[in-house]
Computed example of a mutant assay.
Amino acid sequence: MPSFLQPKTPPSNGDWITEYARTTRVQWQGDCVTLRDIRNFRYITRDQPLPAWYDASYDLNTVQSVDLVVSHWSGPAIAHVFISFGFSDGRYLAISIETRRQNGQKYSPFGGFLRNYALIYVVADERDLIGVRTDIRRERVHLYRLDLSPAVARQVFEQYLARVDHLNRHPEFYNTLFNNCTTNILRHARALAPQFRYSWKILASGYADAYTWDLGLLDQAIPFAQLKAQSLIQRPADAQIDEQFSSTVRQQRGTHI
């Protein structure tokens, strides 16, 4: 369909594939926030999810950290990039910016130019968003701790939730170049640090971690190549995605070194 005949905004209600059937709803209550329908899928195979969602409340004063997740599913230049927030009570909550596809739709970068896919912020348990990539798809997943204070981590968390809330009311189309996982992450970063600039490493998303290191937001005590090796999540073939998943993957990173 020619672009001028395509809709200007994506549908609010669609025949969404199971993973995107629900969007997370945000309820603000002063320094607390309640999130409805946090995704927590398990996967028999990559194409056989076991759907589950839950509700949870978070004290904004307990946001402690932000981790960068870079998952290579093809060559070194191609990766999916998202972030995860850590809280002082030991919980983690991941948020991934993706294409909200309908049944029968397959993702393609070219299709992402043509207003084919809605944009969605998937708010999910790490056992879902990271676990499916490490244990089911067997992608090469790197997990980095960003060098941010708890105060800044809270600001980033609030920004993300505000964006989730906005998209629920005002849907947008995904765009392969201008409204994708990495450009939205950079948009959030620039809201707090306007000096951040676009880079070819943002478009070649597999190098987003290198760009983040260049900006001084990752551990500078060791060379980036060493940090990247140490940040690789190694999962045994018989590993279980259990309640200790988040702590386990953080303990096991870089055990091959």
Rank of each mutant, 00 (worst) to 15 (best):
R138W: 05
S71G: 10
N13F: 00
T18N: 08
L192G: 09
W16D: 02
D55N: 15
V70C: 05
D219Q: 11
G14A: 07
T255E: 12
L68W: 03
E172Q: 13
H166T: 12
D238V: 01
Q220V: 04
I136Q: 09
A94P: 07
D135G: 01
S205Y: 07
F85M: 08
D31H: 14
Y20R: 03
V70R: 02
D219K: 10
T248M: 07
I257M: 08
P109Q: 14
F173E: 00
D209Q: 07
N13I: 13
V132I: 15
G206P: 02
D59Y: 12
L232G: 02
V132W: 06
F110G: 02
R197I: 11
E98F: 03
S149Y: 04
Q155I: 06
A221C: 04
P10G: 01
F196G: 07
I222W: 01
H72R: 14
L217H: 10
S246K: 05
D209S: 14
L203H: 08
P109R: 15
T9N: 08
T18D: 10
D147Y: 02
Y43I: 08
N184F: 01
R42H: 11
Y174W: 03
V123D: 02
L93D: 09
E158R: 15
S74A: 15
F173P: 07
I44A: 14
I95V: 12
K8E: 06
A162R: 15
Y92G: 12
Q105F: 03
D15G: 00
C181H: 02
D238M: 01
G30H: 07
G86P: 00
G112N: 01
